[in-house]
């Protein structure tokens, strides 16, 4: 077995660390020689925080098989909490970030206790109601959100260093993304993660194995609310402005689109999906003929969803991974890593 193979097998998420390190190096070079424009850096920042959001939503939809059309409300809550704590309390960045995940998570558990007694379409409608209610609260609760006036806030500061420069901020949230990826990877391969997957594949079979559907559905709901709250916090810091129009049902549908287009139950898929939804509108706007067609980005996103469901039912990333990357790795080492992973899990 080659060294790389041993490395990948002993530390399965090393590929994420390597990719992050390479990305970091590129950013380091960019910092000194200014290769990317500020606009490109801001787009990359969006890919990162939407990536965390998509990872959270994938936890619910991809790993646990539960639908929600109201997750934008949790992200909005995370963003408003960050703005409020930052402007009124002046708390430390890490504490604010953590609270902006934990409070939506607590709310997610409370609402989940009610909503998760429902299934499929009824769950979708119940969570849609939650999302719409959340947005109305953001619009009307001026003391907390400043309503349609929106809230401005500053970029975070750590140990006296202010991340005002967008390049510095991108590096910071890339590190956070890496931590979230490692957490997700371990979670998905833990006892809980396996129980979620079992529940998604067959509720009857999983119940016969002693898995409490309600407990694990609630866990998935809580974990995804936490992630989405964190993404909301990073959104607020990144954009430095929080406005209620952001947290509508369109954002919840974007989450759905990201994980379906990128790949269900896949870390790489979440990131690819986020990249797709952030970059397609910008590429559309930069293309001469397409730019003249109103709402072309929505049309393309809808078209992409139809094509992906038809021809790549596992999502863009997962399809490329299974058809190109895995066969390449198998051809090189003669072993199937997916099979090895499964074997290792069953052995343990």
């Amino acid at each position: 077995m080659m060294f790389q193979d041993k490395l990948i097998n002993s530390h399965p998420y090393i590929k994420y660390i390597i990719v992050t390190a390479v990305f970091f190096l590129v950013l380091l070079i960019d910092l000194q020689f200014i290769i990317f424009t500020s606009r490109t850096i801001n787009l990359l920042i969006r890919v990162v925080y939407f990536g965390i959001m998509a990872l959270g939503f994938n936890m619910l939809l991809g790993y646990a098989g539960q639908i929600s059309l109201g997750h934008a409300a949790y992200m909005g809550l995370g963003a408003y909490l960050t703005a409020y704590f930052s402007n009124h309390m002046g708390w430390n960045f890490m504490i604010i970030l953590l609270l902006s995940g934990l409070i939506p998570m607590a709310l997610g558990i409370i609402l989940g206790l009610v909503a998760l007694r429902m299934e499929r379409l009824y769950l979708a409608i119940a969570t849609l109601g939650l999302g719409v209610t959340g947005q109305m609260i953001f619009q009307e609760w001026r003391a907390f959100t400043r309503g349609f006036s929106g809230i401005r806030l500053e970029r975070p500061e750590i140990l006296g260093f202010a991340f005002n420069n967008s390049r510095h901020f991108l590096m910071l949230i890339t590190v956070i993304l890496l931590l979230v990826i490692i957490l997700t990877y371990n979670f998905s391969r833990s006892r809980t993660g396996r129980a979620l997957s079992a529940m998604r594949d067959s509720e009857y079979a999983s119940q016969s194995l002693g898995i409490s559907l309600f407990k694990y559905k609630l866990l998935a709901f809580a974990a995804s609310s936490f992630y989405v709250g964190i993404a909301g916090s990073l959104y607020a810091y990144a954009e430095r402005y929080v406005h209620p129009s952001t947290w509508g049902v369109e954002l919840s549908l974007d989450m759905l689109a990201m994980v379906v287009i990128g790949g269900l139950a896949s870390i790489g898929g979440s990131l690819v999906g986020a990249g797709f939804l952030v970059l397609v509108p910008r590429l559309t706007a930069a293309t001469p003929v397409l730019a003249d067609i109103t709402n072309m980005n929505y049309i393309l996103t809808g078209l992409a969803m139809i094509l992906v469901i038809k021809y790549m039912p596992y999502g863009i990333y997962t399809t490329i991974d299974l058809k190109l990357i895995q066969p390449y790795l198998m051809g090189r080492s003669g072993e199937n890593f997916r099979y090895q992973d499964l074997k290792k899990e069953s052995d343990s």
Partner: peptide
Amino acid sequence: LAVLLVLTLAM
């Protein structure tokens, strides 16, 4: 990674 981050910010 942490060293890289600190170096970058210091620059």
